[in-house]
Design a binder for these strands. Structure first.
Length: 692
DNA sequence: GAGCACTGC
């Protein structure tokens, strides 16, 4: 292996302390690394790297409006800082300390850990809020963990976030859509509420741009406040992590086939390295299944237990990953990016990093989201490597050269804000009274094309008016519904068509990944089972049949298993459906059923998705459609019940672009409904006119 | 004949 691999010289664990005012300096000590099993909770807390910075953090938060904390995983910042703040009195007088996370699971686990450390019952002094679940008590909860999406929603009722004294935005380096929106809005809130403290916690050293962003010049400090306002210069503090050292190895020459290189590397680790499980990062299901097959063939009875991991797997298959490795075996998990942040595997000692992941990119001109294999960033590469150092010192094998890493790999990924459609963002900002979207203070500004496209789409849906203001009531109601605006529009229209009962089921199904389980081996059987639910009208109506079956079965997981249906997804459908029902009631909409009339149902769908209408090309041998809007070539996705049925006129929910543009979730329509649904969009159209 | 990952009153 020494011939092939070149040890790297990356020094990830430098500690940097940088108070912009130059007054404070902290020097770190090397990370300690011992098991905590026998220590009391209090002693464990004191052993965390962040503990040394307790006084410093409290000092900075006291004196600065914004504090940026750079800390690696395992520093303890997420669980400790909210407690320090509470101990220092930031939760007194009915005020609440908030800590946001990008993911639900993180919210729950961090909250329960903190409650345990404080010796209180979860949901009282320490609580959490995620969608569908509010574990907080008014006037009792002092520390509240929540997803950043929930905090954004809270702003619709409480734009200045009055009840919070400190808001800590954790994992800000991930730069999710809602984190970026939240940070932009928090900056605005801070102008109006100088006493609000913001803590931004990030795992990467790119704190400078955050600091520059939050360096606000307050304009109107007219009214005298009782406390002196904190410095508007953000402070930056760095805390080291608790991970073990991970030795980085690079290939000497670039590899041409990362799949084969990954397989070879696994075999080589298995041959030459001491015991320890291996985690391999590839890009998608195809790659992963291929690698699993190669390794399983290669590895017959040689002691490798090879397991795939991606979100499309059923829960049972995902859980295999967590089962203990049998004696004398070495576990190899071949995973997508899911293992980079969302799932943590214990016992990994070796990581193989292909250097790629699938990433979503949005083309605002074509209004299409693409999924492409793209190189990862240095930040991701470090995160992946860190997965090898959770239990003991590990090794990371990067399938790219050190020169590439140093010179070519981008430091950070492109923020999601610059890779997505802005339709939802715009509605949320408008609802918060931000009228000038182009002039909004973005952390990373989206392209003007994307913003203009979003405004156009929303205007065509009747959600925004000519002045780009939310329409009343439609626009404001759409903003209340936590779904894609096109789906929200569809839901609201269902009221007129008398089919809201059915439409909210469809909306819920369209809002989850997929209700089918992934079955590669039993494809034929799967297709046959699917036919039991299939409706001639298309996928949306098929989903109604599945939902009915699920409810009829008493929401049985067995029933799901037998029918190749994802039980977790169906439970989520039920949750979303209930939420939508409550929401509509609040908007004064009474749920009505259209019984068997699928025509009104499809008209309601069209009210949201008229822009996605397509017509089958005449004499097309391979089922080619063209979009009415822009004559784009599209095909029905093979997972659709209308695949090979090819009705003349269809409307799709979304496009998946791989080698072709595939329409996912397709329904057959009558073209006359189009003019009815959107006269402004489809007027006087003779062959292939383009509205834009 | 095909499927990155999260998330939301």
């Amino acid at each position: 292996m020494s011939k092939y691999w070149k040890p790297g010289s990356e020094r990830p664990r430098t500690v940097l302390v940088d108070d912009e005012e130059g007054g404070v300096l902290f020097v770190s000590t090397p990370a300690s690394s011992s098991g905590f099993g026998y220590l009391s909770l209090e002693r464990q807390r004191q052993r965390l790297p962040v503990y040394k910075y307790r006084t410093a953090i409290l000092y900075l938060v006291e004196n600065h409006a914004t504090t940026i904390i750079v800390g690696e995983t395992g520093s303890g910042k997420t669980t400790q800082i909210p407690q320090y703040l509470k101990e220092a009195g930031w939760a007194e007088g009915g005020r609440v300390i908030a800590c946001t996370q990008p993911r639900r699971l993180a919210v729950q686990s961090v909250a329960s850990r903190v409650a345990e450390e404080m010796g209180v019952k979860l949901g009282e002094e320490v609580g959490y809020t995620i969608r569908f679940e509010d574990q907080t008590k008014p006037n009792v909860t002092k520390i509240k963990f929540l997803t950043d999406g929930v905090l954004l929603r809270e702003m619709m009722d409480d734009p200045l976030l009055i009840k919070y004294s400190v808001i800590m935005v954790d994992e800000a380096h991930e730069r999710s859509l809602s984190t970026d929106m939240l940070l932009g809005l928090l900056k605005k809130v801070q102008r109006r509420r100088p006493q609000l403290r913001i803590i931004i916690s990030s795992a990467t050293i790119d704190a400078k741009s955050m600091a520059t962003f939050f360096h606000i010049r307050r304009r109107n400090i007219g009214q005298a406040t009782e406390d002196p306002a904190p410095s508007e210069l953000p402070a930056t503090l760095s805390v080291e992590g608790k991970g073990y050292n991970v030795e980085i190895h690079y290939v000497e020459e670039p590899v041409s086939d990362y799949l084969q290189a990954a397989v070879d590397t696994v075999m080589s680790i298995h041959d030459k390295e001491p015991p320890g499980d291996i985690l391999v990062f590839l890009t998608g299901q195809d790659d992963i299944d291929a690698a699993v097959q190669l390794l399983t063939e290669d590895a017959q009875n040689n002691g490798l237990l090879v397991l795939p991991l991606y979100s499309g797997l059923s829960r049972a298959d995902q859980d295999l990953i967590f089962s203990p490795t049998p004696k004398g075996k070495r576990k190899v998990v071949i995973s997508t990016n899911i293992a980079e942040t969302s799932l943590t595997l214990e016992g990994i000692v070796y990581v193989v990093d292909s250097g790629f992941s699938k990433q979503r990119f949005y083309n605002p001109i074509a209004d299409i989201e693409n999924l492409v294999v793209a190189p990862i960033s240095k930040a991701s590469a470090r995160q992946r490597a860190g997965r090898a150092g959770r239990v003991r010192p590990g090794k990371c094998f990067r399938l790219y050269t050190e020169e590439y890493f140093v010179k070519e790999m981008p430091a950070e990924g492109i923020p999601e804000m610059q890779r997505s459609s802005l339709v939802s963002c715009v509605v949320q900002l408008k609802a918060l009274g931000i009228d000038n979207i182009l002039g909004f203070d973005w952390l990373a500004s989206p392209s003007p094309e994307a913003m203009i496209r979003a405004l156009e789409v929303l205007y065509s849906l009747g959600i925004l008016d000519e002045d780009a203001k939310l329409t009343s009531p439609t626009g404001f109601q759409v903003a209340e519904i936590p779904l894609d605006p096109m789906i929200s529009k569809m839901i609201l229209s269902a009221d007129t068509f008398g089919c809201s009962e059915e439409i909210i089921t469809i909306a819920a199904v369209l809002s989850v990944q997929s209700i089918w389980v992934s079955v590669r081996g039993a494809q034929r059987e799967f297709d046959e089972v699917k036919l039991r639910f299939a409706a001639a009208e298309g996928d949306h109506v098929t989903y109604l049949n599945v939902y009915k079956g699920f409810i009829h079965s008493g929401k049985s997981s067995q029933w799901c298993y037998k029918n190749y249906i994802n039980y977790q997804a169906m439970k989520k459908v039920v949750d979303i459906r209930e939420q939508l029902g409550r929401l509509l009631r609040r908007l004064g909409i009474v749920l009505k059923s259209c019984e068997r009339d699928t025509q009104v149902l499809r008209k309601a769908i069209l009210a949201g998705f008229f822009a996605h209408a397509c017509c089958l090309e005449e004499f097309s041998p391979n089922g080619m459609y063209k979009t009415i809007k822009s004559s784009r070539e599209v095909y029905i996705h093979p997972s659709s019940v209308l695949f090979r049925v090819n009705p003349k006129w269809v409307v799709y929910h979304s496009l998946v672009s791989t080698d072709k543009h595939y329409m996912r979730n397709v329904i057959a329509i009558d073209p006359s409904w189009l003019i009815e649904a959107a006269p402004h969009f489809y007027q006087l159209r003779k062959p292939n006119p383009a509205p834009y």
